[in-house]
């Protein structure tokens, strides 16, 4: 099925079988391999992307369901050279090790903090509980998110 949507500010059209998940479409049809697939059954959160402002699991959404949507992937958080405040905070706090869950962590937190820049630690923990990280133990991820809040509060969250 031919569908059109917008990814990271760019209009795209793809021809996907109905069974193609948004995750596979992004990765294999559009070569946006920053979105990772960790379980394909909606538990691990590695494939999280932002669809019309909402963080969603792209393995639990069909590509054909993305028709006319505006999608942001981790690549869309990295349009300019350098790192955004959230990415910088991840580096500073050692909030990643193997890097596999990281794109999903960033997209989830970006969606959250864009909408709730004053989210407290409990809220952040609660939200991130939908993303599995096997390396860090999460503590540094929470620290990084707390640190990045100020940039979202000042409206600079998406600036590299």
């Amino acid at each position: 099925m031919a569908i059109g949507f917008e990814v990271n500010g760019r209009a795209v059209s793809v021809d996907c079988a109905p069974r193609t998940t948004l995750a596979d479409c992004l990765r294999h049809d559009l070569k946006l391999t920053g979105t990772h697939v960790g379980c394909e059954h909606g538990v691990c959160g590695a494939c999280t992307v932002i669809v019309n402002g909402d963080a969603v699991r792209s393995c639990l959404m069909l590509a054909v369901q993305a028709k006319d949507a505006k999608i942001t992937t981790v690549e869309g958080l990295s349009m300019e050279e350098g790192l955004t405040p959230l990415q910088t905070a991840f580096k500073k706090h050692h909030a990643l090790q193997c890097g596999f869950c990281t794109p999903g962590m960033l997209t989830t937190l970006h969606a959250l903090l864009s909408e709730e820049p004053h989210a407290d630690e409990d809220r952040i923990r609660d939200v991130i509980s939908g993303n599995i990280c096997r390396c860090t133990g999460y503590i540094t991820i929470i620290e990084a998110a707390m640190d990045a809040r100020s940039s979202y509060q000042s409206g600079e969250g998406d600036k590299a």
């Binding site: 909606g42 909402d54 699991r57 939200v127 939908g130």
Partner: peptide, 9 residues
């Protein structure tokens, strides 16, 4: 109910 991302859909 479930997690943040699931609740969005």
């Amino acid at each position: 109910v479930a997690h943040y991302q699931i609740r969005n859909r």
